[in-house]
Design a protein around this nucleic acid. Structure first.
Length: 541
DNA sequence: CAGCAGGGGGCGG
DNA sequence: CGCCCCCTGCTGC
């Protein structure tokens, strides 16, 4: 160093990075992971997420998947959006009333600076100049910039918050537990629970990773619709804010919640292998429970997730998988909602923007699905939420009607698919809540919806192949396992029957356990290494 | 070969 | 009448 060592310093390095980061985020460029929360997809960058959260770092580390989808349960969309802002921008405006929920979410996700002390100052910069460490003594309180109340912070010492906002107990917004916003909205309640009772495991996990290009057009329209509809609702929703409880949980706790599930269902070949990782952030209790029953939990959860996620699935896919051209469109469609980037959040009152955005994104309108009546019925967020929750059940059950499904996206394999314009007409009274497709019969709709959920209840007894339709499995067997069939009289195509229970539960369980080990958390991970199949167990045959 | 949808038949309420 | 199941056909990879 002695000799003329020159230090080249890029003065605007930080700001440039920051700026680029914002752009990249806004455009979803280079995103390599997707967070799914309450029906919305948030394309994100592993780098950023990992930087701001060890938890994410861990998830991504363990998830070889190229474009994993992390399903966050029990985290509100609005909280997530705020956290993303926090992570990308370094700061975020939060309503006092929402602070508790936000912190809780941060803890669950172990967001540095908010829930976890920032060890490395360097990183801290990135995140935000001022971290909002409620918990940390030294660091300044969370930074909330302009909050409406003007008051200061919302950090309330009250420790009583139930961290898991969503208690497994019941969903609805029990005010008690859910501190933040909107209980009404959707809530976190996606409970993990699931209909397990008698219900078969929710099959679905699947979400598929299909990236679908196809979906776009439709989705857009969809989204728009939904937005419009929702908007109104939204406004009403927002108000709720119970500040009463605030955050507080110990940092240690956080992990309790995160179990993650990954289900790789990328059946899609070329595109990207996406894994679904479901992260539930619950209270310890929940997690415990889940742990014990991996299978059904998984399934159910997955469903839920997926469904929720489905909302923006296409978007996510497109982004995640490949950067698409559609970005703009999508973006527009959803409006800056999802992307709280500078554009959205900053200027406007924080809360509002989130609220609206979130709501908009949420597929409420979707609910109507096949049942117009249902649609109408669902007006409040509450309803929406419930619908959403029940979705998984419904789907499993057969999607009888109104449930808000998630949408993976159609791969449009079968071209006919709603081909753009064929939507719903009088002939096709059964509308798909997720896309413009209109089915002639309810049955068809249910079947169609599986394309969104990724549910593949029919499994081939000879290989891991699974299909949405039984006839497809039959076809598959006829073509691929002719010999096997002939040799093994016992197993006829008929055997293939819908194994919904089986197929889902098993795979799930297995995978889940493995991953699960990592923490007690409640995250279930469904991993299927291959596209649609994952069950070695099942495939026994 | 796989995905998806249309249409028809059987069965039970 | 509605649900379920199956067959069939078309499309895309």
């Amino acid at each position: 160093m002695e000799d003329g060592l020159l230090s080249l310093k890029w003065n605007n390095h930080k700001s440039t990075f920051f700026h680029i980061l914002s752009e990249v985020r806004g455009k979803h460029t280079y995103t390599d992971a997707t967070l799914a929360c309450e029906g919305k997809f948030f394309p994100v960058h592993k780098l950023v997420m990992s930087t701001c959260s060890d938890y994410f770092a861990e998830i991504f580390e363990k998830t070889p998947c190229k474009n994993p989808v992390v399903v966050l349960k029990d985290i509100k969309k609005s909280d997530l959006e705020a956290l993303l802002d926090y992570m990308y921008i370094g700061e975020v405006d939060v309503r006092q009333s929402e602070l508790a929920g936000l912190i809780k979410a941060a803890e669950c996700l172990r967001i540095k600076g908010l829930a976890v002390p920032d060890e490395d100052p360097t990183k801290a910069q990135k995140k935000g100049p001022s971290s909002v460490p409620e918990r940390r003594e030294d660091s300044p309180p969370a930074k909330r910039k302009r909050r409406d109340s003007g008051g200061d912070r919302g950090r309330i010492p009250s420790p009583t918050i139930s961290r898991g906002s969503s208690q497994s107990s019941s969903h609805p917004p029990s005010a008690s537990s859910v501190p933040s916003q909107a209980p009404s909205q959707l809530s976190s309640v996606p409970e993990s629970h699931v209909p397990s009772q008698s219900m078969p495991p929710p099959p679905s996990v699947s979400q598929e990773t299909r990236h679908v290009d196809s979906g776009r057009g439709r989705q857009d329209s969809h989204l728009q619709q939904s937005q419009s509809q929702h908007t109104s609702q939204i406004s009403s929703l927002r108000p709720s804010a119970d500040t009463s409880s605030l955050r507080s949980p110990p940092s240690g706790g956080p992990e309790s919640s995160h179990p993650s599930i990954t289900s790789p269902r990328s059946s899609d070949q070329s595109i990207l292998p996406v894994q679904m990782i479901k992260v539930e952030v619950d209270d310890a209790d929940n997690s415990g429970a889940k742990d014990s029953h991996g299978d059904r939990e998984d399934g159910s959860e997955m469903d839920g997730d997926e469904e929720e996620t489905s909302n923006d699935f296409s978007e996510y896919q497109s982004h995640g998988g490949e950067i698409e051209k559609e970005e703009h469109d999508q973006m527009d469609s959803y409006g800056a909602d999802q992307i709280p980037g500078p554009s959205g959040l900053q200027g406007a009152p924080p809360v509002l923007s989130w609220g609206e955005e979130g709501e908009a994104g949420f597929p409420h309108n979707l609910f109507g699905g096949d049942d117009p009546a249902a649609q109408q019925a669902l007006q409040g967020p509450d309803l929406a939420r419930r619908a959403w929750e029940s979705l998984s059940e419904s789907l499993v059950a057969r999607l009888t009607s109104s449930a808000p499904p998630p949408r993976p996206s159609h791969r449009l394999g079968g071209s006919h698919l709603h081909s753009g314009g064929t939507p719903v007409t009088s002939d096709r009274p059964h509308l798909c809540p997720l896309c413009p497709y209109g089915a002639t019969t309810r049955d068809s709709l249910a079947r169609h919806i599986r394309t969104h959920t990724g549910e593949r209840p029919f499994k081939c007894s000879y290989c891991p192949y699974r299909a949405i339709q039984k006839s497809d499995v039959d076809k598959h067997i006829r073509r691929r396992h002719k010999d096997a069939v002939s040799n093994w009289p016992g197993v006829a195509p008929a055997t293939i029957s819908n194994v919904s229970n089986l197929s889902y539960s098993q795979p799930v369980t297995t995978a889940w356990q493995s991953t699960h080990s990592r923490q007690n958390a409640s995250t279930n991970v469904l991993t299927e290494s291959t596209p649609s199949y994952s069950s070695p167990a099942n495939s026994n045959i």
